[in-house]
Design a protein around this nucleic acid. Structure first.
Lengths: 101, 101
DNA sequence: CGTGTAAGGAATTCTGACACG
DNA sequence: CGTGTAAGGAATTCTGACACG
């Protein structure tokens, strides 16, 4: 369920290396609500491999001239779709479950 | 090929949290050649999720009274087996390749 | 708007050593 | 042998601000 891909364990320095993005950019995308790292007790940011992928994605869109708020909107649309998918799936499961009785 | 599991990107603090082992222990197992983290430019250790699993494994064996040099021997035996497996596999592939001609 | 940078401080990690056993 | 700890320093990261545009 929670695979390595989603464990928030990577520091910003390594994320910077992995993505090629400056730490400044990475922090800025967080400020713009595009990425949501965890924090250690001390306050240092921790990212997952999934975050690293998302960051590369974000960087590509910005390079294509998209603005952060547009990217955020797009992400929210995706989340909504995922929500809908989840709801539909749950609906189907419920239906199937009822039929079993 | 190189999946998330083998990317050395996790600091020792997080590894300590993930494994429940003290940093002292983690460093000591390295000293005893049981684990091989990468190093950042600055010299800080970086571990993979595979390393985290190995550390838990090592800790269990030590808890069972095994000594570090025994664990190391065991690991080397495994590596040798893997080597043999690799060699055999390569041998079979070679044989199959020859037959195709 | 998105990003670089210098600034000062705080959190993280490193090594070598002493301790116990 | 395996592990804890205090010590001092170095590497890493943090925030808020100024700059450019």
């Amino acid at each position: 369920m929670t695979s390595y891909k989603d464990k928030k364990v990577i520091g910003i320095g390594i994320v910077s290396e992995l993505t090629g993005l400056s730490e400044r950019k990475i922090r800025y995308y967080e400020e713009r609500k595009l990425i949501f790292p965890d924090r250690s007790k001390g306050g240092t940011r921790k990212y997952s491999f999934g975050d690293v992928e998302r960051l590369v994605d974000i960087a590509n869109k910005i390079e294509d001239g998209m603005q952060t708020f547009e990217i955020r909107k797009e992400e929210m649309r995706k989340l909504k779709k995922a929500d809908v998918r989840d709801k539909m799936l749950r609906g189907q499961l419920n239906a199937a479950f009822k039929m079993r009785k």
